[in-house]
């Protein structure tokens, strides 16, 4: 077993250099550098629509950058062929913002799906594995339900069980806390941290819940307007003097980060059309 006691002297698990990406004419990333260290919980934060989900999709090779390099465990994601990319993905779990469960399978079969696809385990072993994963997210009792019978928060926890099913080296969480009540939120926080420490699963955590995330993260990246504004330990970030970081982490309505999607002045819009 690999030691995680001193991750600083290992190469980072994910290494992003000079990442550029645009959607049509809209620039999402304009030269982003990110290091995700092994064995750590790295939080990615930023205003809605800055491209956090996009970043996860780039890391997992679902999208292709316009420029820059993304390496996961030493492999250049976008230089891999399909088979190599799939082999790498078997070692990554991703929790989609929407859950993305297969709607024609029940909860049990959804969690069993990747195991059935990639292994030849016996039915009784699969059953045990699945029930353990479901127990970890507190939904063993929901094994027989269909995805349409789950609440949004439950669906996301099932998706987490599925992302863990293949015991990946890292899991990317896209807003896992949305729609969770305080109890399951606390349980999820503990789960993410303990998966990270006990099972040595590195975590990339996208979340808007600043206090909770800061409590379990080892490193926080704040991204806005296509750039990494600042990164560092939670303490350093919470005490940051940078006005962007301050505004975002402390939820101040006024500051350099605009609440509005770029638009012409309201008065122009209201007076301009059909006025």
């Amino acid at each position: 077993m690999k030691s995680v006691s001193d991750p600083s002297d290992e190469k980072p698990l994910v290494r992003i250099r000079g990442l550029k990406f645009r959607r049509g004419s809209r620039v999402i990333f304009d030269g982003v550098d990110v290091d995700i260290q092994r064995g750590q919980v790295t939080a990615v934060m930023g205003p809605s629509g800055t491209g956090k989900t996009t970043l996860l999709k780039l890391i997992s090779g679902q999208l292709r950058p316009d420029a820059g390099v993304i390496e996961v465990d030493g492999l250049n994601v976008h230089a891999l062929n399909r088979a190599e990319l799939y082999r790498l993905r078997m070692r990554m779990g991703m929790l989609f913002q929407s859950g993305a469960l297969l709607t024609d399978l029940n909860v049990f079969e959804n969690v069993a799906y990747p195991i059935r696809e990639h292994t030849d385990l016996t039915e009784s072993l699969i059953r045990k594995l699945v029930l353990i994963k479901l127990e970890a997210v507190g939904l063993r009792g929901a094994a027989g339900l269909m995805p349409s019978e789950l609440s949004g928060g439950m669906a996301r926890r099932i998706a987490l069980a599925r992302a863990m099913a293949m015991d990946p080296m890292m899991i990317m969480y896209d807003e896992p806390f949305t729609g969770q009540d305080p109890i399951s939120m606390g349980a999820l926080l503990k789960l993410i941290r303990s998966l990270n420490d006990a099972a040595h699963i590195s975590s990339i955590l996208v979340s808007h819940d600043v206090q909770e995330t800061a409590a379990i993260a080892d490193e926080i990246y704040v991204i806005s307007n296509g750039h990494v504004i600042q990164h560092g330990t939670p303490e350093r970030m919470m005490n940051s003097d940078d006005p962007w970081v301050r505004q975002f982490l402390h939820g101040l309505p006024d500051g350099p980060v605009p609440f509005h999607y770029p638009a012409p002045p309201l008065a122009d819009d209201l007076l301009g059309e059909g006025g």
């Binding site: 999709k57 997992s60 679902q62 399909r82 799939y86 082999r87 993905r89 078997m90 990554m92 779990g93 991703m94 989609f96 929407s98 993305a100 469960l101 297969l102 709607t103 799906y113 990747p114 696809e117 990639h118 998706a159 599925r162 293949m166």
Partner: peptide
């Protein structure tokens, strides 16, 4: 189409299933 809209197809991709 609905599988695509609800990210089920991307979900399969991420489970290394074509």
């Amino acid at each position: 189409g609905l599988m695509k809209a609800t990210e089920q197809l991307s979900g399969l991709e991420m489970m290394a299933v074509d």
